[in-house]
Design a protein around this nucleic acid. Structure first.
Lengths: 105, 105
DNA sequence: AGCACATGCAAAGATAAGTTAGCAGGTGCT
DNA sequence: AGCACCTGCTAACTTATCTTTGCATGTGCT
């Protein structure tokens, strides 16, 4: 769920695509993607929260603090069966209320 | 994208899970899941739009019109590479603006 | 000091998505 | 006729998500 919701966004999908080509620091990434740094940061935060990317803070030789991001090598397989296997399917009662983390689907 | 966005919802995930166990008509499904028919219909419509489920309208032996839904046997594989392969990554310009259908990821 | 570049955060505004409530239509059975 | 089922739609509301704007911090170079 978290993974799916996170990937269900054009910007974040692009971030993953770009980072798949190698690590980048946020300002660099923002320029490359043509979006504002603030916006990118929000998306990076979500991607990180979902465990799809990870970051390392580094100090460049000229003293600038730079945060490098890279993709986590994830692999998600979606089929009706895999979903049925993960979703708790208690027939009658309300269940989907207030639950939002699944992490495995 | 469409597929991901559609699956990124607890209700719709549950619908897929339940339908993976066999076809159901909407009122039956609503009861079984403990949600309102109106709500279910909205989600079914989205699932259908994404091609994840399909419907057949049938007339039961006692004359009632019933709409049966069943899952489409889809299979989506998500990895950084598969995403990078699909996402058009024109570096600089604004690209993610206003596009939302992808259909393939 | 002033400029260029790096990070980080949050309030506020704009959009999109989810949900409910209420109405419409139809069939069959008592 | 009245009730129990079935479908379908939408207007209005609530909630979540996305995006912008603006400010604060720090470094190095001229």
């Amino acid at each position: 769920m978290l993974t799916l919701a996170t990937l269900a966004n054009p910007h974040r999908l692009r971030v993953v695509a770009v980072l798949a080509g190698g690590r980048k620091y946020v300002s660099q990434l923002a320029r490359e993607m043509g979006i504002s740094r603030a916006l990118l940061q929000v998306h990076l935060k979500k991607l990180e929260a979902a465990g799809l990317v990870s970051a390392q803070m580094e100090i460049s030789p000229d003293g600038k603090a730079m945060k490098f991001y890279e993709v986590t090598p994830f692999a998600v397989h979606l089929t009706p069966e895999s979903i049925a296997a993960v979703v708790p399917e208690m027939t009658g009662t309300d269940t989907a209320r207030g639950r939002d983390e699944k992490g495995t689907v």
